[in-house]
Design a protein around this nucleic acid. Structure first.
Lengths: 300, 300
DNA sequence: GTAAATCATAGATGCTGCCTATCAATACTC
DNA sequence: GAGTATTGATAGGCAGCATCTATGATTTAC
């Protein structure tokens, strides 16, 4: 049954429209015996008769008419789908990967840019941890990723798109308690530190910042969660402090759920767009070019 | 491009689902080189690349992924459409023809019967004059027709389904005027007669009825209209009298728009269902069987 | 009755799709 | 790091199929 070709259906539709095999043959630039043969093949594949002799012409059977009716819209849609790839304009499904912070900072602007400039391009967005993003990119599960921290894996081509500033955050209650205990430089017990998982670049930055300021403190109490939004909720609930991207906490700070407890000295975390080094698809390259032009620190 | 067969698309979809050519080959009960060849053919027909080497596997290109996404639902719909004809149940599009009176008397019950008993059957209904119905039936433009009057054309198989009683009708004002003039047997001027066109069986019956009762009258004034509903409206507006099927005027009589002026002597007009004599399609035959069982005079 | 129109059939031909048997490249494993 | 498994590509051979031209059979029209 799957040996039916598109021209079999096209033939059926044209016979139905024009009424005779000969007319369909002319329309399809072929001969009448070819049309007969195609109908015979189609009927053989389907296992039932499509036409019935009616005088000197052929009339559609009940099932044949049903098939014509069913196939008419499907045929048109299929023709369009198959022809879509030949359009000169950029068309396709591009899989975008992004870390959670990158998703919050880069994606809104990027998606808006792509939708206006390249309306034929459909984005499949997947939010993952940085380590997984690199894996997806190399494994061809993603075409373009936004990730945190300088990544220097072989076979990856990157472009910096700016930095996000980080800030130690806590709930107002926790901050007051820490101030009462005289902790002004860096957090310590009894306020535990919450962070992204240990393999995350943000975690490394946090350890770095911690080392700069707390050489004299004992090993800090670090707990992890792989989701920044959840991290914010935890800290806002007074369960500890966390080094959070400023851009994702603005709302919570404005509403009084969070308050900054200590400004970090460093320049924050660098974000970058990345594609495979050997990427050749013009659409992905164009999207990478546009992604590289993003500046996530500019609008602040 | 139309040389693409369904198995090409099926192959593409299974590769996309299973990830490798080899897995798709096993799923499709064929060999891996065959899958490679099919992909090559498909890409050749489409004119653009669907896959790109990625390590030792193949990854979909942006366009390829787009095609997979577009084809997935179309493929399923097409498979369903093609398989529909092989279902054991009756499925198909049957073209029904009917005269206007038959449409009013037979079709409601017939359609209800078919929709409950044969839900897979779709009816295409066309209302035409009797002469045209016979022509449609013989020309294979209709599969089953309901028509008035005993039709004895060669190549047609009929079954009587009852008679409709006829009645001379007029508006109450016209009826009163006729009564005042002492016309009790049959209508005459100044109330003109309205009728269906001259080739219609109902017109013949009307002439017959007229002849029975008005041998002494001069040639009556006969006007025609090819639409019974319009005929009713004309008569109700006081423009004349007409020999109308009782079943179609019940409502107008009940509402006082029409009133019977003289009961006709004959048994009315016989209606019948008809198919081509050499009809072989089991669905049409089944529908004819069901149509023959109708009794349009029974429910009265 | 003749002519035109419609579809079917037959034979020839070129192409296409499939299979078996290999090769090449890559990833995994000990 | 060597061996092995996996993945897809290639080559050769073969069968089948779609197409064409030429012709036949049947029906409709004039």
């Amino acid at each position: 049954m799957n040996r039916i070709a598109l021209y079999h259906l096209e033939t059926l539709l044209w016979i139905a429209r024009l009424g005779t095999f000969a007319a369909a043959a002319e329309r399809l630039n072929t001969t009448q015996p070819t049309i007969s043969a195609r109908v015979r093949e189609l009927e053989g594949q389907l296992g039932y008769a499509l036409f019935r002799r009616e005088g000197r012409r052929m009339a559609l059977t009940v099932r044949g008419r049903q098939l014509v009716r069913d196939c008419e819209p499907l045929w048109a849609a299929l023709e369009r789908a198959l022809a879509a790839g030949n359009l000169s304009g950029a068309t396709g499904v591009v899989r975008i990967g992004a870390g959670e912070i990158a998703a919050a900072t880069c994606l809104p602007g990027f998606v808006a840019d792509v939708e206006t400039a390249l309306p034929g391009v459909t984005l499949d967005i997947s939010i993952e941890l940085t380590a997984r993003l690199v894996q997806d990119l190399l494994g061809a599960t993603a075409d373009l990723v936004f990730l945190a921290g300088p990544v220097a894996a072989p076979g990856i081509q990157t472009a910096g798109i700016g930095t996000v500033s980080l800030c130690w955050m806590a709930s107002p209650a926790t901050a007051a308690r820490m101030a009462a205990q005289g902790i002004t430089g860096a957090p310590a017990s009894p306020a535990p530190i919450w962070s992204l998982p240990r393999h995350s670049p943000l975690h490394q930055v946090m350890i770095q910042a911690l080392g700069d300021a707390t050489t004299t403190l004992s090993a800090p109490d670090i707990r992890t969660c792989n989701n920044v939004r959840t991290l914010i909720d935890i800290v806002a609930a007074g369960r500890g402090v966390a080094l959070l991207p400023e851009i994702m906490t603005r709302e919570a700070v404005a509403s009084g759920r969070l308050t900054p407890v200590w400004q970090v000295a460093g320049r924050g975390v660098e974000f970058q767009a990345a594609i495979r080094a050997e990427e050749s698809d013009p659409i992905v390259l164009e999207l990478f070019r546009r992604a590289s032009a993003l500046r996530i620190d500019a609008p602040s």
